[in-house]
Design a protein around this nucleic acid. Structure first.
Lengths: 246, 246
DNA sequence: ATTCGGGCTTGACGTAGGTCAATGCGTGGC
DNA sequence: GCCACGCATTGACCTACGTCAAGCCCGAAT
């Protein structure tokens, strides 16, 4: 959020993170002392599979992403981390390694917090602990949700589910909803990687939904987001919902 | 662990749970006061999809399981909870509902802890918070691992991965390893539901692995676990590992 | 013993969906 | 202006895998 106008400490950055908000001032100072502020350009590789996790990475602006790549080259997006969210929590509690590549989905500013500093901070503050727990619990719930989808539903159902989720704004990975239109960040291939399928299959399914009059995809109209933001307007939300299997 | 010889409070049950171990005695008492001890017979339904989550469920013995069922009837095991582990953590931080059915995978004894009591307990103890965080972080890591597998790997690779995981004892869902043999709890259909496939497909893949001399499945020999424990001996771990894609 | 049922295996079959390749379009570079 | 590149779309193909159905084995119940 705060650009690094190289002041002595990035307290602003740390303090603006939800899980640390409300921390006593001296604790914040301690934390800020252990911070390394970094910027990544879209597409940059932050960490690779099996790299040791030795920082809690908190994103200030932009988006990071954890991607699993199978031997055959297929990619599955496993986590997306937006402003105020974090990454690398496993390192806090154990010696661990990334089990996927971490890349910048957008130009991103992030704080690298040494795990010891974070451990100290959270064990000194029940509220911070609670917020961390909350964050993890939510993430876990979403992860298990996706597990279930990936394991038991076909592409059509997953896509439908993603669309209704996006339409309800309940989806971290979608942009704002305007009337009944949804704007997706990034290219379709990205959503394909989220849904565990290929761009081609996704394209076909979108087409059938369009043909069935469930959605429509207006031309970009040369407005809004300059870079690859796709828009889709939901026509028959109810039908989509029942396709997704509630 | 401790049977409920209806003493006034089940402190033993609560105290033996890792995330609460080391809690001060009075806090334990508070917790114990808010406990409901329950037993479930294998197959029993503890909670259904969309039921409100209003307890932290800690299993003392046995196994609980969360299953997602798709509209077409396919089932995906989303979580398995063994002794000392818990379920329902999302209820601690938000009004939430189960997004899958919770059933007893075995005869199970569990403690139902009111969320308020647990919240109080953990906010009074940094160590307890830390252990809870650790538990969630690990679970999340495993969940994301599975997400990646389900989304990007085929059944053969997933099976191979599961086998090497089991062989290394790193897998919660496998029994002990004896030499290079692994014993799986429950029927194959169960593992199929974990791997996001069907019993038939699993059977075929096991067969091809057997034909290729990577594993073998000895006859039950009328020993060990009475009920449906399957054993498989790993012959070529290295090859399995490379099939799984490291 | 006979029967029943549940889990496992196998076969045959159909299809969802992944792969490969060609085309079209829009954008940025030069 | 042109060219090149990235993304999307579409078609053709093929295979992994899910589905349905039959047979089998074994343990439990009658």
């Amino acid at each position: 959020m705060v650009p690094n106008h190289s002041g002595h400490a990035h307290i602003g950055c740390v303090a603006s993170v939800p899980i640390f908000s409300g921390l006593p001032h001296d604790t914040l100072l301690q934390l800020a002392a252990a911070v390394r502020h970094r910027e990544f350009r879209r597409g940059a590789l932050i960490a690779s599979y099996s790299d040791p996790i030795d920082n809690l990475i908190v994103v200030a602006s932009g988006r990071l992403r954890v991607v699993h790549t199978s031997p055959s080259g297929r990619e599955q997006i496993v986590r997306e981390v937006g402003p105020g969210e974090f990454l690398g929590e496993l390192g806090l509690v154990a010696a661990a390694r990334y089990d996927g590549d971490v890349i910048a989905a957008d130009d991103t500013q992030a704080c690298m917090l040494s795990k010891d500093a974070v451990r100290r901070a959270i064990s000194s503050s029940p509220e911070a602990s609670m917020r961390l727990i909350e964050s993890l619990a939510r993430r876990l719930a979403r992860a298990e949700q996706v597990m279930g989808d990936l394991g038991a539903r076909d592409v059509g159902q997953r896509l439908a589910a993603e669309l209704v989720r996006a339409a309800q704004g309940g989806c971290e990975c979608s942009g704002r909803r305007e009337s009944n239109a949804v704007v997706l960040p990034g290219p379709w291939s990205e959503m394909a990687a989220r849904l565990g399928t290929t761009p081609e299959s996704l394209s076909r399914r979108l087409r059938t939904f369009e043909d069935e009059g469930l959605i429509s995809r207006p031309a970009p109209e040369a407005e809004s987001d300059p870079d690859g933001a796709r828009r889709v307007v939901i026509i028959d939300l109810e039908r989509l919902r029942e396709i997704s299997g509630l």
